[in-house]
Design a binder for these strands. Sequence first.
DNA 1: CCATATTATATGAAATTTCATATACATCAA
DNA 2: TTGATGTATATGAAATTTCATATAATATGG
Lengths: 170, 170
Amino acid sequence: MKNHRPRRAAAGRTFVRDYLSYLLGQANYAVYKDFEARVRAAGLSSTEWRVLATLSDGDGLTIGELAADVLAQQPTLTKLVDRMARAGLVERRGDETDGRRTRVFETARGRTLVAPLLAQAKAHERATLAAFPAKDVAALKAILRTLGAHAPSDPAGRAAARAKPRRRPG
Amino acid sequence: MKNHRPRRAAAGRTFVRDYLSYLLGQANYAVYKDFEARVRAAGLSSTEWRVLATLSDGDGLTIGELAADVLAQQPTLTKLVDRMARAGLVERRGDETDGRRTRVFETARGRTLVAPLLAQAKAHERATLAAFPAKDVAALKAILRTLGAHAPSDPAGRAAARAKPRRRPG
DNA sequence: CCATATTATATGAAATTTCATATACATCAA
DNA sequence: TTGATGTATATGAAATTTCATATAATATGG
């Protein structure tokens, strides 16, 4: 389908094809791409789907928790939750003991909308992984969980983060 | 760190924690997060970094090829390339045999900017994966490559894509 | 060659995301 | 309590992304 013929392709130039982050991104895109059609057909964006799926596992999460779970930034989530609340998919409630927090709950409408998607997502995942031995799938998920759990420590990286210039150097 | 205590957490509610796409996303975020600081310190956005890294493997890719490689949409890439060209990081050249195509090349400045990042990315990946047996890493990458290669066939999903209503159903 | 379909990129307007910061509440030390 | 500091979310303006479509070039069938 795609016809890659890089002009300057040379001997050692094969960075991205081996780079873990690239492989993770491409794999995720490939496995999600098909399913995205279902999500869009339900009238949801990808992030909205992740929000509803996450809340289905247990709602009442704070804005910050939700942001971390769906890999979005806090102001993005604040505004997304605004829109989803206006659409009647979720509901905000102030935390009773900590007035700074906003907890997010699914409405009946949100649940109804996402329920069939959850089932379809499971089916789609089963179909996607059907070709692989169950053992390999388990191993894959285990290592992904481990990677996702501890942010690997990179002191130099964090130092760079603190210094952050933020704009293109001249 | 995060203090999740979902209000409605119940017995079977554990969808996302087992969902492949979620695991891939979380893992990618975790392994990339630290490194992103370096990217920002170089004055680049994540997508700009992916563009330059991809072009370093061989440039002269078309807008469409680049979009697919960095998992962005075509209009996004068109505009990103505009900005990167203005910043002197890449250069557009019309394809000689197909007048519709635009091929994108790295400038010397782009190469100079991304070179240290490529080295740092390799080092960071080595550090991230150091704890895992080489055998497991190889298996992980192999399965990721397989997943990324064939978009799993899901006729129902494609049918839904064709039907796409695009807006929230009443 | 012509007409039509297809493909690749560009573009305008609208929607979303981001950055920086404001606001409100909570916590801690004295 | 008070004041200082930290934390959670909200918000405004700017930047980016998206959707839909326009534009331009190429392929294809007759």
